[in-house]
Amino acid sequence: MIQDTAAPVARSRRFANHVGRLMKLYPLLFIGFALLLTVILVGVIGSRFMDPDLSRAGSTPLDIAPSREYLLGTDSMGRDVLAVMLRGTPLTLQVGFMAATIGMGIGIVLGFVGGFYGGIVDTVFKGLADILITIPALLILVVVAVSLTGPVSINVQALVIASVSWMLPTRTIRAQVLTMRERAYVSVAELSGANRFEIIFLEILPNLLPYLAASFAATVAIAILTTVGMDALGLGPQNVPTLGNTVYWALFYSAPLRGLYWWWAPPIITLGVVFIGLYLITAGLDKIANPRLRSHG
């Protein structure tokens, strides 16, 4: 009986030790996770205590500096900036994660199929990714968004961004699968009669997990960058207080030139924290995946 209770404690202590050692080895990775989690938690928890109506235009007096009543002040459209931020941050992250998940999914399929089977399929996938990756994503999005009739919703925006987010993962995953194929254990698996799906899912995929994670973090960062860029150009979904839209309206009302720092600064600082967090995560995962990058310093 005693053992039954002791074992999980020991196990959880061992887990804590393990995490502690990882934290020591990869401190930046953990700072990155902490930054991102903070932003997400503030958004999730904060929005529970906030009246969402305050993020609607005309619900507050205009241009009030931060005060006890309005912690982050109000903007020129009569919105409580704190309410706007608490609603907008999760929305922007949501678009980024959705787009990156879809883009990454496409990338994994194309990268694995191309890298593993080779041949014409590979040439086509690789060629397509190589060409499209050179064209600036924002430009493609501008053309697409202008050509779309009717207003864009958050989900449509995520889909559109996903359509320009698959190239990078496709290329990196394909390259990794190619080198994996050459490794001894894959040949051994092939010789021992494992079928190709078994090889992909049991031999190659587990070894690529750090790469996939790093690639995903990078893709999320790019997707958020793209959605904010679209929004700031006025091409995003209307009437939704995403971070990019907040920047757009702050610029529209010349907030930086009117000293309304409480309007333009919160979305920029939040985005800064998100981007730096994602960058640290990507860099940390890259180091795990590719020990050669570890510098001797």
Binding site: V228, A232, V247, P256, A265, I268, L271, G272, I276, L278
Partner: peptide, 13 residues
């Protein structure tokens, strides 16, 4: 890690 136009807004201010 921060897009340059966002840095630009800070610089303007």
């Amino acid at each position: 890690a921060i897009p340059y136009y966002l840095i630009g807004i800070g610089l303007i201010y």
